[in-house]
């Protein structure tokens, strides 16, 4: 019963165990960030509002994310709740060890088998991307510190990570980690030409029943300045994963497909 709750949702919500200075080494931070994502099961529901570069706001959509994260295997299922056009549309994704991320989409109602999907496609037209949810950058080699910064009211330490993999559209990540709460307050993602692709900014955090700090409100700003505002309105650190939860990832139709972007 004593499962470890996940840092709610996303890999964005990154909490490291409390460390007093000695763990400020970048490798240790990355290691801790991978570690704290582990969960036997978690669920979160969120309202997502798209704000166009013109400032125009779309009607919010509701999604739920369920996940189970261990060192050997990570699995996530994203489900559309509302409105009608996204209802019960699913995206499931998994990753074994530091391997590639594989995603499929399916509909509960339709009898159709899951179809392979690109882990870099935005979720329901938002800036939220499946690939980001896995925070794969924390397993990239040779992270290093990039100085301290201030995000909102909080101080944080920049951790720079990069990958040589030409297959990855994201080649460099700068994550600003709050050394006290061990929360990634700002995550900047860059492509191979060092151009910014997205920035994930935590606007409001909350401490959960397990004592971990998770983002309650955050935004993702794309290169086109379109903003996705995300507010978590319900969470469960202790979600009971059933045999059916990730079944779509195991169906034959899906296993034959190759992921669009293999990770090194």
């Amino acid at each position: 019963m004593m499962r470890r709750g996940s840092a709610l949702l996303l890999a964005l919500v990154l909490i490291a165990p409390a460390a007093d200075g000695e763990e400020l080494a970048p490798v240790a931070i990355a290691q801790a960030m991978r570690q704290v994502r582990h969960s036997d099961g978690f669920a979160a529901r969120m309202n997502i509002t798209l704000v166009a570069p013109t400032g125009q706001r779309a009607l919010p959509i509701k999604i739920s994310i369920v996940g189970q994260i261990a060192a050997a295997r990570e699995r996530l299922v994203i489900r559309g709740i509302a409105p009608e056009r996204i209802r019960n549309r699913f995206i499931a994704a998994e990753r074994s060890g530091d391997g590639p991320i594989r995603a499929v989409t399916y509909r509960e109602s339709a009898a159709a088998a899951p179809a392979p999907a690109d882990s870099f496609i935005p979720i329901f037209d938002s800036n939220l991307v499946v690939w980001d949810l896995f925070a794969p950058w924390w397993s990239w080699p040779e992270p290093h510190l990039g100085g301290s910064a201030r995000v909102g009211e909080d101080d944080c330490v920049n951790v720079r990570l990069h990958t040589e993999s030409a297959a990855s559209p994201i080649r460099e990540v700068v994550s600003c980690v709050d050394p006290n709460r061990h929360l990634s307050l700002r995550t900047q993602l860059f492509d191979g030409r060092h151009s910014p692709v997205r920035t994930i900014l935590v606007e409001e955090a909350m401490r959960q029943a397990s004592g971990r700090v998770a983002a309650r409100k955050f935004s993702i700003t794309g290169a086109d300045q379109a903003v996705t505002e995300i507010e978590v309105y319900s969470g469960d650190e202790d979600y009971r994963v059933s045999s059916g939860t990730f079944a779509a990832l195991d169906t034959p139709a899906a296993t034959g497909n190759q992921p669009d972007h293999a990770m090194p």
Partner: peptide
């Protein structure tokens, strides 16, 4: 309930 958290309502439990 579960030992109190800062949530508006105590977090759910089995």
């Amino acid at each position: 309930t579960r030992i109190a958290s800062e949530n508006a309502m105590p977090s759910p439990f089995r």
